[in-house]
């Protein structure tokens, strides 16, 4: 006997339902289909059987929709869960990519976490592209597993992520500008005074010249954030342009931090009669490690913020 649309429908329905209910539901739905076909035959004895069957299936609706109505947990993934998944994936992918790029710049040749975290190949282009795709696939797969596990254990925990929108106010913008001016002053005029160590009666700076060479680029990052606050002040609230400016600030800040982490030397502790070369090197190493931890955490936070701002910018532009 050839398979009919009815057989396909019932089989699809059975596959979608929990095993303990599937056979029973199939029998009941089959009876409903048969009842409708019989009623059509009574009204019109010459009715086309296939068309009568199709009409009965239309009355039931798609198998997926019917199965969704019949099971206690939804088959169709709610919009909120999908949105959460996409946002978390964007953030995780951005951070994972950032770390891989940082490892590449640092010249690492080994996998930090085999199979999960490794430097990106930097040539040829096809290898770089495949490397990025691989990172995306790993993150997608890992998140899917986590979501399925959480979905089974505690479905209510999969709430939407925190709202993207944080109201920008003029007061906040003014405070932000003041803070940025202070940061600019420290970075451009008082860097050596702030990052210095006392030797005898004098304070001697300990930041390496490599590290200080990125100061002009820090000003660029600060300028993006300042632009965001200025736009907020002028427009009396947050606009898409302000969001874009902040997003660029976060992205450039993250990139700058990654570059800073891969510089040759961040710290050069000055030596003196009280601090020998060996002790100074140990201190260099210690302070550099602390700086690196701060840099990595800062870069990740900026990257996460960039992802949220990028999503918010997209929504503001579409609105």
């Amino acid at each position: 006997m050839s398979r009919t649309e009815r057989d396909d429908y019932l089989e699809r329905l059975e596959e979608l339902l929990p095993a303990r209910e599937a056979a029973r539901v199939r029998m009941e739905v089959d009876a409903l289909i048969e009842d409708r076909i019989e009623e059509q035959r009574e009204r019109d004895p010459d009715v086309d059987e296939a068309e009568a069957e199709r009409a009965a299936l239309r009355a039931l609706g798609p198998a997926e929709q019917l199965a969704d109505e019949l099971v206690s947990s939804p088959l169709v993934i709610p919009l909120a869960t999908r949105r959460t998944f996409v946002r978390v994936l964007a953030a995780v992918f951005a951070c994972h990519l950032l770390l891989s790029v940082a490892l590449t710049f640092a010249g690492a040749t080994w996998d930090s976490i085999p199979g999960l975290l490794a430097p990106l190949p930097n040539e040829p282009f096809a290898a770089v592209f495949l490397g990025v795709i691989t990172i995306f696939l790993i993150d997608t797969g890992a998140l899917l597993c986590i979501f399925v596990a959480i979905g089974r254990a505690a479905p209510d925990r999969l709430r939407p992520t925190a709202p993207l929108h944080a109201r920008a106010t003029r007061k906040g913008a003014l405070q932000g500008l003041v803070l940025l001016v202070l940061m600019a002053l420290i970075v451009n005029l008082f860097l050596d005074e702030v990052f210095s160590v006392k030797h005898g009666d004098e304070f001697r700076p300990f930041l390496a010249s490599d590290f200080k060479s990125i100061v002009p680029y820090v000003n660029l990052v600060l300028a993006f954030f300042a632009l965001r606050h200025i736009l907020t002040l002028l427009d009396r609230g947050e606009t898409a342009m302000a969001t874009a400016a902040e997003a660029l600030g976060c992205l450039s800040g993250a990139a700058l931090l990654v570059i800073a982490a891969t510089l040759g030397k961040l710290v050069e502790m000055p030596t003196s009669s009280k601090l020998g070369r060996e002790a100074a090197e140990v201190l260099d190493n210690l302070i550099e490690r602390v700086f690196l931890v701060i840099i990595v955490i800062g870069a990740l936070l900026l990257m996460l913020r960039f992802v949220r701002l990028a999503i918010r910018f997209g929504r503001q532009v579409r609105a």
């Binding site: 539901v25 009941e28 739905v29 009876a31 409903l32 009842d35 409708r36 009623e39 009965a56 009355a59 039931l60 609706g61 929709q65 019917l66 109505e69 019949l70």
Partner: peptide, 26 residues
């Protein structure tokens, strides 16, 4: 039975199809 109920509801002015009624009955 199910389809009998669909007919009765239809005659009473409630046009429901099996896809709507069956989940309610279950």
């Amino acid at each position: 039975y199910g389809y009998d109920l669909v007919r009765l509801l239809g005659a009473a002015g409630f046009q429901v199809e099996e896809g709507t009624l069956y989940p309610i009955l279950r």
